[in-house]
């Protein structure tokens, strides 16, 4: 398939996770589970950038965007459809905290499809493994780049910049088909209204059952990290301000 230069179109798959929002109150129910009370779920922040990038590429080059999610993620898939995805595939599999299982499940479904590009978020905001994208690319034997900060289609290839440490970036060219994981800030994701999400209800979410028997890891226990705590300054806002100024003076800051 030839793409780019206003020529033929791009077939893009986006991976999206329905994840626990970082604003949630996270309390442990027991060693292996989090109290569902107080938890807010939404599309993983990095995946918001991923779906936006896919839709922009489609708007520029034409083509099709399919969003794919593992687990109980209808709301996130709907949101992606409302943002402009054409199709959604739901894999109703409980993968817990094992990114390997998630990648295997997606691999099973995606290897049956035709695509030029897979876009994933750099990591999930809940488990922070940053693995599903890179594992999937390795399993499918695709060239890939992580932490991508800009994308251009050029001569049927993808020219991207990726983030390194300390503000440095690296420019690389990837042959298609390929996979990228995107870093936050790559674009400004569009806003979708509740109405928009309602309207997207007419679009179909296809369910595909996948069995994954292999596991690499198991959660043993979760706990609050041991931390040394700051000395707390308390009182009214005015009292706190006064105490802060005393500290500034004492330390020679002002």
């Amino acid at each position: 398939m030839k793409i780019g230069n206003g020529g033929e179109s791009l077939k893009i798959f986006v991976l999206a996770k329905h994840a626990i929002d970082t604003e949630s109150e996270i309390r442990l129910k027991d060693e292996k589970s989090i109290d569902e009370k107080g938890l807010i779920y939404d599309i993983n922040d990095w995946d918001r950038y991923a779906i936006e990038e896919a839709i922009r590429l489609k708007e520029m080059h034409g083509g099709e965007v399919t969003v794919i999610g593992v687990g109980n993620n209808e709301d996130t898939l709907r949101k992606c459809l409302a943002m402009g995805a054409d199709r959604a595939i739901k894999i109703p599999l409980e993968t817990g905290m094992d990114p390997y299982k998630t990648a295997l499940a997606i691999k099973d479904v995606i290897s049956e499809e035709n695509f030029d590009l897979i876009i994933a978020g750099l990591m999930s905001q809940d488990c922070n493994n940053a693995l599903v994208g890179a594992l999937l690319a390795s399993m499918l034997n695709l060239p890939f780049a992580t932490a991508v900060t800009s994308v251009k289609v050029e001569d049927g290839k993808l020219r991207v910049t990726r983030e390194l440490e300390g503000g440095y970036q690296e420019e690389v060219i990837l042959q298609l088909p390929c996979l990228i994981t995107v870093q936050s800030g790559i674009n400004e994701p569009r806003y979708v209204s509740i109405m928009g999400i309602k309207r997207a209800k007419s679009k179909e979410i296809k369910e595909v059952d996948v069995k994954v028997d292999k596991e690499m890891i198991e959660l043993e226990r979760m706990y609050l990290p041991p931390v040394k705590k700051a000395e707390l300054i308390t009182g009214s806002a005015d009292e706190i301000a006064e105490k802060l100024i005393e500290i500034f003076k004492e330390k020679g800051v002002i």
């Binding site: 626990i20 890891i217 198991e218 959660l219 226990r221 990290p225």
Partner: peptide
């Protein structure tokens, strides 16, 4: 041993 939720929780992972 690793952190999840950007430092808010810690987990022990048993590797197969």
């Amino acid at each position: 041993k690793r952190y999840i939720f950007q430092g808010k929780l810690m987990v022990d992972i048993l590797v197969k």
